[in-house]
Simulated scan of single mutants.
Amino acid sequence: MTFQIKQEIASCGGKLMKLSHPSKKTGTEMEVNVYLPKQYFHKQDQSIPVLYYLSGLTCSPQNASEKAFWQPQADKYGFALVFPDTSPRGEGVPDDPEESWDFGISASFYVDATQEPYKKNYQMFSYIHDELPRELSQFFENKGNSKLDFVENVAITGHSMGGFGALSAFLKLYPERKYKSCSAFAPITFPSKVQWGQKAFGGYLGQEEEKWKPYDPGHLLKMTTNIGSDKILIHQGTGDPFYKNQLKPELLLEASKGTSWDGKINLNLVEGFDHSYYFVSTFVPEHAEFHAKNLGLI
């Protein structure tokens, strides 16, 4: 599989690469942005770890690349960044028939859909956590002065719907220790209990709530055993208009009670912050340090 380089942009001390490639999982052309830190351009003894960032509803790979200010932190610690798209796109890709912004194109919820007409293209869980890392590894192999580790030494974070996607993937794949660490900005923490999640899960996975549990962080906490040291970092603004009705991070804390994750979720309620990238960018340095420690960079 071949990536097309659409643009290379000098950014901070490194380079942002805007790529596209045909995906077998989604059956569409997929866009992805990759930030190569300054360390990539100098010979490294060890491979450079990778942080995956999943964006929220209505977003594309451009939003966080332009507004989250991850690049200076990537240069500071020496990790690369991958910004996948939020859904398949293109002619023939089914969208929400009601043309709403919280379902369909740019709102995949990062699951592998099982329902028509979405299951053909909306295979986003398999795409992001299986196909994309393998294809990026092959594409960047023997390029540049340093090796990039897209598969083994990786961490995950995200915002809003992407925060849910990060929590879901971290916990769902936890037994195999796919991701070294997980953090989230204003995530949808227990989608089975809020309208955004119920609509998405019902549309992509069907109306039987039992089929939602393998993706729902609130249930996955009870199905996965923490090995004893792993923690999850979350920031949530109290001025976020979605905080009380769609995000509800306290539900995740409640769900963790009595499980191996009890006391392992570091929820930070930050006064006055909203849902925007002003909020995200403010706390990116804290999340970057958290992941750098878990990736062995500090």
Rank of each mutant, 00 (worst) to 15 (best):
L173P: 12
A184V: 12
G197V: 03
G197T: 04
S183K: 06
G228A: 01
Q198L: 08
L252H: 04
G218Y: 02
E210A: 11
D240L: 01
L253T: 10
P249N: 12
I234E: 02
H235C: 03
A184Y: 13
S181H: 10
I227A: 13
S168A: 08
K199F: 14
K199I: 13
K193Y: 08
S229P: 01
K248E: 12
K172E: 00
L253C: 06
K248A: 09
L233C: 06
V194I: 04
Y215N: 09
G239W: 07
M223N: 15
F164W: 15
A186M: 03
N226V: 11
T238D: 05
W261G: 00
L247Q: 14
L205R: 08
S260L: 05
L251Y: 09
M223E: 15
T238V: 06
Y243M: 12
L233Y: 08
L221I: 15
F190T: 15
S183V: 01
E254T: 14
L233E: 06
G202P: 00
Q207D: 15
L221T: 11
T224Y: 04
K248Y: 09
Y174F: 05
Y179G: 01
Q246C: 00
L171T: 03
R177M: 10
S260N: 08
G218F: 03
A200T: 05
K257I: 11
L167M: 09
A169G: 03
V194G: 00
G258P: 11
E210F: 04
Q198A: 02
T259R: 11
S192I: 14
K211M: 14
S192A: 15
E210L: 03
G206E: 05
N226F: 07
Q236E: 12
G197N: 01
M223V: 11
G237M: 08
W261E: 00
L205M: 10
Y174G: 00
Q195M: 07
L252F: 04
Y215D: 13
D262C: 02
C182I: 08
E176H: 04
L205H: 10
A186C: 09
Y215R: 10
S168N: 07
P191K: 11
L251D: 07
E209A: 15
Y243L: 12
G218R: 01
N226H: 10
F201H: 14
K211H: 14
P187H: 01
F201V: 09
L171Q: 05
E176I: 05
E208Q: 15
W261K: 00
S256L: 13
T225E: 00
L171C: 04
S168T: 08
G258N: 12
E210W: 06
E176C: 03
L233I: 08
A166G: 13
I234Y: 04
Q246I: 00
M223P: 13
T224Q: 14
D262R: 05
P191W: 10
Q207F: 13
A184D: 13
G206I: 05
G258Q: 10
G197S: 02
T224C: 05
L251R: 12
A169Y: 03
H219R: 10
A186T: 07
P241I: 07
W196I: 02
F190D: 15
D216M: 06
E254Y: 08
K180Q: 13
K231F: 09
G163I: 10
Q195H: 04
Q246P: 00
E176R: 11
K244R: 11
N245M: 12
K213S: 11
C182L: 07
L173E: 15
F201P: 03
E250F: 06
P241D: 07
N245V: 12
A169T: 04
